[in-house]
């Protein structure tokens, strides 16, 4: 299963980005192959609709779970219809590697 983690930077040592739609990077982790994919977020600075556009990006890569600090209201019904799980993590000091370790536990 693929899990998207919003990241402030492009490495596993980067901290979790607290925003979903406008995060700096998406790091997609595959729990089966243990592989990762790092995608700079093209929706970071769009005027409107960063949330849905970012859902589109991760959903087109078959992501089933998203870990981020906060999710906006406009994506709620989308995420529900697509059966993607949102995981809200408020611990701002966690790195992407920390989160992957937590997911593997």
């Amino acid at each position: 299963m693929k899990i998207a983690i919003t990241s402030t930077g492009n490495s596993l040592e980067s901290k979790l980005d607290q925003r979903f739609g406008r995060c700096a990077y998406f790091i997609i982790y595959d729990t089966e192959t243990k592989g990762i994919e790092i995608i700079p977020n093209p929706n970071k600075d769009v005027e409107e609709g960063a949330g849905p556009a970012s859902v589109n990006l991760v959903a087109s890569r078959n992501v089933k779970k998203i870990v981020s600090g906060a999710f906006g209201v406009k994506i709620k019904s989308l995420i529900d219809s697509l059966k993607i799980q949102m995981i809200v993590l408020k611990e701002t000091d966690k790195t992407v590697q920390d989160i992957i370790d937590m997911l593997n536990k």
């Binding site: 929706n43 005027e47 409107e48 609709g49």
Partner: peptide, 20 residues
């Protein structure tokens, strides 16, 4: 121009985000 149409062709999914 406003990201108001959400579409995922491979799984035949389309939704209008009315607020946008």
């Amino acid at each position: 121009n406003y990201n108001a149409i959400f579409i995922l062709p491979p799984i035949k999914f389309i939704q209008v985000i009315e607020e946008l």
